[in-house]
Design a protein around this nucleic acid. Structure first.
Lengths: 349, 349
DNA sequence: CTGTTAGCGCATTCAG
DNA sequence: CTGAATGCGCTAACAG
């Protein structure tokens, strides 16, 4: 009663290479050659095969090709984050856009996966090593996530967004990151240049390198200017708008005389500005604000948000390109790239 | 013996079922049975196989299984929309969440794909019929999109979000939609009940059933109340925030005495309220506003937005469930389901 | 309960 | 240039 794995699964039994060859009057071998590049095939045979394939509406069975070739032409993008945040944060949107466009150009498919719990993490590994995935792109990796390491150990090429640990580097994990510390430094230096002195920061999660690096930049800029990066001036959020608001509120409570905030993401910056407005602080007159990301919302905000631009789409594009090269065994100059950032001055600072 | 025949497969050769069987001292057949449910296998053999698989770190090759079984255990979610909008609109986030959770429960993988241009559309079909996909979920389908039809014609099970055409229904396309007309009607009736008389609407795209159905609900409610659904009261947007603002601006220009707007999405409603604020109209005192979706942003907005709730996550979950049932050949009671909506009254109306 | 056999559809040797 | 043969790793049907 149940439809078991019968050969004729589809309603009409899909055309196979064998049929195409038969119609074209050649052997399976030449048909195959004709369909893939057509090297070593006579023009006549090539035309015949192409016509036959077209007539029959032939589509190669990827599973079979996968089995024969040992590759699936698809790569996974795994997001170690709740899907809620994935969609809320424009950062991901841009990365996905970059990845997708680069992958499409290379004729590969994007398989999106979330891995929030350990169960899902295990499933990702299972799926990837089952040869369903030729490689994996990792996004939003937190410090203690074993995924990069276990994937590489299983022989899967991995490129992640953001710097990894030394262990991961040695294991062969590749990555691309923005110059987070540099960007943060530039932002804070700018704040100093326009005369601010009590410069706080709302940072990202402490268990992510992006989070820590931007704090480091803030710290450096302050120290270089002979200022003390007091602990009270440092707050952590999780990159969400709400967390930015909460952090800023706490900050204003404890450090009322703050005159500038460097916020580690535009979304959090927008949240922080809500807190400022509620407290009656004018931006930038009383408190200057600089964000990070140059998200679309930053430009749209009223007033337009000064921010550190990291070309996120580039990051995605770069990750995808590196992975594809690695899969194809093509030479790769750098296995760990750092993309530049630049300050975009608008009205909030 | 060119291949590395050692049981301990290094980075090159992954352990195969054959090796597991060898180590366990049984045949490939029993090893296979043991690993899939273990029916008709002696306890001793079962244990031996399991231990061997565990020791070798065996992972079944999905391509091979796919080829043998005729299914890939993965389904595609194709979004006929720019990735920009995909991520901007919380609607998609919720659908993806629902789909993903249901799929994970069924042990299937989600393959995300965009199909913005014809080239990508063709690629989706190619990919799906290549047996890489057991079925396809369609989101944000516009009126003239040939994708659902061509997929079904190619023998791929398809479930889409939103009602399809009569042709698609006959072809065997399934779908799940919210009660859009009903929800719109309820919203407008509520507006009438609180005394509004010049009730405009900012609708969705005219080439989408969701867009048209919500207009229809608005129309019905007005007519039933003996009011005329004047063309000047109807504006179209594309569900984006910006389009909502533009539509509302044009509306206020032409119909200055409007006292309520039913907006076909929360995002557009938020845009519309920006326009109202700029024009100095108070909400809800001068103009009442009702949105659609009950997006997170609706509740967060100041003032909180009255809206029509459609449990979007449910839609995704339902779509996925229907597709999985169909793939498994399990009985399905309904091929076209309509999910209820309900009005959530907050402060804007 | 088990080992054996026969494909699944394709790319790729090897002879001609 | 081409056809025939081989194998990718797995499942299912068929005998024991």
């Amino acid at each position: 009663m149940r439809n078991v794995g019968s050969p004729q699964a589809g309603p009409a039994g899909r055309p196979t290479l064998e049929m195409v060859a038969a119609v074209a009057g050649v052997s399976r071998g030449t048909a195959s050659r004709a369909l893939n590049g057509g090297a070593n095939v006579s023009p006549a045979a090539l035309a015949a095969v192409r016509r036959a394939a077209d007539e029959l509406g032939y589509r190669p069975n990827m599973a079979a090709r996968s089995l024969a070739l040992g590759r699936s032409d698809s790569v996974g993008l795994v997001v170690s984050e709740t899907d809620e945040r994935l969609f809320a944060d424009p950062f991901f949107a841009a990365v996905v856009r970059g990845v997708h466009s680069e992958l499409t150009a290379a004729g590969m498919q994007l398989v999106l996966t979330f891995s929030q719990c350990d169960e899902e993490r295990a499933q990702v590994v299972r799926f990837a090593v089952g040869r369903h995935l030729d490689g994996v792109l990792l996004i939003s990796v937190h410090g203690d996530d074993p995924l990069p390491y276990s994937l590489v150990r299983a022989g899967i090429p991995v490129v992640m967004a953001g710097r990894g640990t030394e262990q991961e580097r040695r294991a062969g994990v590749w990555w691309v990151e923005a110059d987070n510390a540099g960007g943060a430094r530039t932002a804070v230096q700018y704040l100093l240049a326009i005369g601010r002195r009590r410069i706080a920061t709302v940072a990202g999660p402490a268990d992510m390198t992006v989070g820590r690096d931007r704090v480091e930049g803030w710290r450096q800029a302050l120290s270089s200017a002979g200022l003390e990066p007091e602990p009270a001036l440092l707050r952590h959020g999780d990159f969400s708008e709400l967390s930015g608001r909460i952090a800023a509120e706490a900050l204003l409570e404890e450090v009322p005389d703050v005159d500038a905030i460097f916020v580690a993401s535009d979304l959090m910056a927008i949240g922080a500005m809500q807190a400022l407005r509620v407290r009656g602080r004018r931006v930038p007159d009383d408190v200057a604000v600089v964000g990070f990301d140059n998200a679309p919302a930053a430009a749209r905000h009223l007033p337009p948000l000064t921010t550190v631009d990291q070309s996120v789409e580039q990051i995605g594009r770069c990750m995808a390109r590196m992975l594809v090269h690695r899969i194809d065994g093509r030479p790769v100059t750098e296995q760990h790239v750092v993309l530049p950032t630049r300050l975009v001055v608008r009205e909030t600072a």
